[in-house]
Design a protein around this nucleic acid. Structure first.
Ligand code: MN
Ligand code: MN
Ligand code: MN
Ligand code: MN
Lengths: 234, 234
DNA sequence: ATATATTTTTAGACTAGTCTAAATTTTATT
DNA sequence: AATAAAATTTAGACTAGTCTAAAAATATAT
């Protein structure tokens, strides 16, 4: 009997889920907004930087294992089992990101690549002890929510900076784009999670904003305001 | 061009070493006593619980990448490059074991399985920050030495309990067999790293020892004394 | 020195996961 | 409704890593 042996997690001699399957589940979970919506083959392929034909192959395997419901040409939707498996991968990813930033001096633009690896480590005890060690964080270094053991996510009232009306005092609570480039640009602007500023004015021409940060005015483009989550402070 | 894409570490777009290759390198490294001796195909197969034919296949790949020197039917020996790659895997394995015990409340019999996964995470920064976070430990929870960044290992004067002469005061500094079974048995005997005891007498019949631990006599079999490393205290 | 046993390698097969190119189905446009 | 475009699936090929069975080389025993 051939089981691939390496790279595959085995519990009680039953194969649970491979690294590759986990990556597909995670992609479906995130594209579908945490398991809600149905997801197209192409959307998965694009997100995972792979080919649609590969996605179709994998979707069939996931359907066989009842992680997704699948009808040809109709896209997929996570089952409850799939949603839980996927949320667990995301939980691990985000917990490890917190660990790297809080304990190992990583900056928020350095953690993602390593967390992509760490999220596949299989050990319930490890995940839960890590959670406790970090004092049960609710959000990762990019402001994204960390699902709990049961896959439950606390939803917060964050809103995109671009939606905020002039005069509001805001606190930065997350990023929509968490690319290295954007994060480093925010560093340069001295904007990070917890940064407080006021929306001074909005330019009609290009929808750029002028915000007041540390008493000084700062202009931010529409691209920035469209990718920064804030909470209104008053 | 096909590169397997997943599971393979890429630095500057050059494939460095796969998870499977790392496992073989580690096995050769440990069998050869940290890269010294030449190692037979069968020895690798036995240690890795795989078939000799698979080992031969992999050996050829490792030789192509100049991690080992290989002549048909003559076994393999690690090159300097191979020794360093292997020592890095062992370094990571043992650092993670320290992390799990010191920070995440794992016991010494629970860490190995998880460390087998964690040892393959590729990030120099992670390894070095973890090392610093743990305050540069020199040994893992089983008393095994942790190679430094350059692959250097501090060698210690530890000796098997079975070699110690009667009357010696010993401090337990490591185990040769680190199976769950042996480690749990030691727990039951209240023997761990740092435990101090005196060798009271040796039984000629079965070479069992009577040791004095916390004022009380305790009998340990030859199997135990052959798998426990100690340092003489005076 | 020869025969036997052991070790190692080779040959051929298999799975997981990927790809390209072609076929099929669904969706959008006239 | 027919056609064109886009999305999706299928067919067939490829690699890494493994296996079994057979062949070849080396080591051991008479
Ligand atoms: Mn991330
Ligand atoms: Mn994140
Ligand atoms: Mn170990
Ligand atoms: Mn160890």
């Amino acid at each position: 009997m051939y089981y691939g042996k390496k790279c595959i997690f085995v519990a009680n001699n039953i194969i649970v889920v491979t690294l590759s399957e986990e990556n597909y589940l995670k992609a479906i979970y995130l594209i579908s907004k945490y398991g809600g919506e149905s997801v197209s083959t192409n959307a998965i392929a694009e997100r995972m930087d792979t080919k649609a034909s590969s996605v179709t192959d994998m979707i069939k395997k996931l359907a066989d294992k009842s992680f997704v419901n699948y009808k040809k040409y109709q896209g997929v939707r996570l089952t409850e089992k799939g949603r839980l498996a996927a949320s667990n991968v995301v939980r691990k990813h985000r917990l490890w990101e917190v660990f790297l930033v809080d304990k190992l001096n990583f900056s928020w633009d350095e953690v993602h690549e390593v967390a992509e690896q760490l999220e596949h480590i299989k050990s319930e005890k490890l995940t839960n002890e890590l959670d406790a060690f970090l004092e049960f964080p609710e959000e990762d270094p990019h402001g994204d929510p960390i699902p709990d053991k049961q896959g439950y996510i606390k939803n917060s009232q964050k809103v995109l900076l671009s939606q905020v009306s002039t005069g509001s005092v805001c606190i930065c609570v997350g990023v929509k784009d968490s690319s290295v480039e954007f994060l480093q640009y925010l560093d340069k602007l001295s904007i990070g999670l917890g940064t407080v500023f006021t929306v001074a004015s909005k330019e009609v021409f290009d929808e750029s904003l002028t915000i007041t940060l540390n008493e000084s005015p700062l202009s931010v483009s529409k691209t920035v305001s469209n990718n920064l989550y804030v909470k209104i402070k008053n």
